[in-house]
Each structure stands twice: as structure tokens, then as C-alpha cells.
Amino acid sequence: MARRAIIFHGTNAQPGWIWYPWLADRLRTRGYDVETPHHPGTNVEPIASFLPTVLAAHTFSDDTVLVGHSGGAALLLALLEHLDVTVAQAVLVAGYSTHPNDGPEPVLQDAYDWEAIRSHARELVFVNSVTDEFGCDAEQGRAMFEKLGGTLVVRDDGHFISDTVEIVDRLIP
């Protein structure tokens, strides 16, 4: 079975923006079958009604790598909690598990089954920045790391909205 990657965009974003197409191309050259879906309901619709739509739209296996940015990273927490398989890797870029700012965050669940999340990813990587302008900062990354283990990478890259994010490419085998 071929290695697969699914890149989930952030809140009010699209798959053709910022570094998503760049990373997709990099992974394809390394033999990945890559999906970059557009889920406009990310962090707009309540997670309880949105999650079944996302789960039904994709196939997950032990060869799948999940990458999520911002609201897409928060979405990965709910996905991982409710999967019935263990994926190879989940990379949460500018992720968060609690309200990062004063805005609404319908992508967040009220509570998480941290053990279920941990059991559904062989490897977890959190990439956060000390200078994230939306509050998806290093403290958010540390909070998830403390609950789930894995690898925490702390940068000084704002909200990771450049055209390339070399660190993410280097973290995926």
C-alpha cells in the first residue's frame, strides 16, 4: 500500500494557500499519495456535526500521515480521537486544544480522550511558535505534548503562513 498524506488547512483557508501546495508537491516527489481537501466548515461548524463529514470523506490507514495547520490541527485532535485505525504520523502545526484567543472555536471539543488520541497515531509532532499572532503558541504546543507525548518543536515563525515551512517537510519521513 502506498504511503498517504492528508493536509488539512486552517480556519477560513483553502488548500491552494500558503505552504499547503508546496508541502503536497514535496511529499508527492517522495512517493506519497497526497490529499489536500477543502473543508470550509473547519472551525465554522460545530465539531460534533462537522467531524462525521470529515471522517466519511477520507480513508485512513496505518500508512497515513496527517498534517493540520491551525484550525486544521485542532481538527486532527477530534479526528484522532474518533478513528478506528492507528495512523503513521500526525503533525499539528500551530495547533491548540484550548481557546487560543477571544474568537469562537467551534472546532474544539469540550473535553478530549487523550489516551484514544495517543493510541491512534504512532507518532505525534507539535510545531508551534513563540510569536504566534493568533495565540496558537508554544504554550498550546506544550500543553498537548504534556498530555500526549511525541515531539514538540518550538520555532519563532509566527503562525506559519509563509509559502514554505521547511521544518514540517523535514519532520515527515
Rank of each mutant, 00 (worst) to 15 (best):
D25S: 12
R28A: 15
R30H: 07
G31H: 02
Y32V: 10
Y32T: 08
D33P: 14
D33T: 15
E35T: 10
E35H: 05
T36G: 00
T36N: 05
P37T: 09
G41A: 12
G41E: 13
G41Q: 12
T42R: 03
N43W: 04
N43I: 06
V44K: 08
V44C: 09
V44M: 09
E45K: 14
E45P: 11
P46T: 07
I47K: 03
A48C: 13
A48K: 15
A48Q: 15
F50C: 02
F50A: 06
L51C: 03
L51T: 04
L51K: 02
P52E: 00
T53W: 11
V54A: 08
V54W: 04
A56H: 12
A56K: 13
A56V: 12
A57C: 02
H58F: 09
H58Q: 10
F60Y: 10
F60P: 05
S61L: 09
S61Y: 07
S61D: 11
D62Y: 11
D62L: 11
T64P: 04
T64D: 06
V65I: 10
L66V: 03
L66G: 04
V67Y: 07
G68L: 01
H69A: 09
S70D: 00
G71T: 10
G71Q: 11
G71C: 11
G72M: 03
A73C: 00
A73F: 04
A74M: 04
L75A: 08
L75K: 04
L76S: 03
L77F: 05
L77V: 00
A78Q: 14
L79K: 13
L80T: 13
E81T: 04
E81I: 01
H82P: 11
L83F: 03
V85P: 05
V85A: 03
A88T: 15
Q89A: 14
Q89T: 14
Q89H: 13
V91D: 05
L92S: 07
L92M: 09
L92Q: 07
A94N: 00
G95E: 11
G95A: 11
G95F: 11
Y96M: 09
S97K: 13
S97F: 12
T98K: 13
T98S: 14
P100K: 06
P100D: 03
N101T: 10
D102M: 08
D102Q: 09
G103Y: 15
G103T: 15
G103D: 15
E105A: 10
E105W: 12
P106E: 03
P106T: 00
P106D: 01
V107K: 03
V107M: 05
V107T: 01
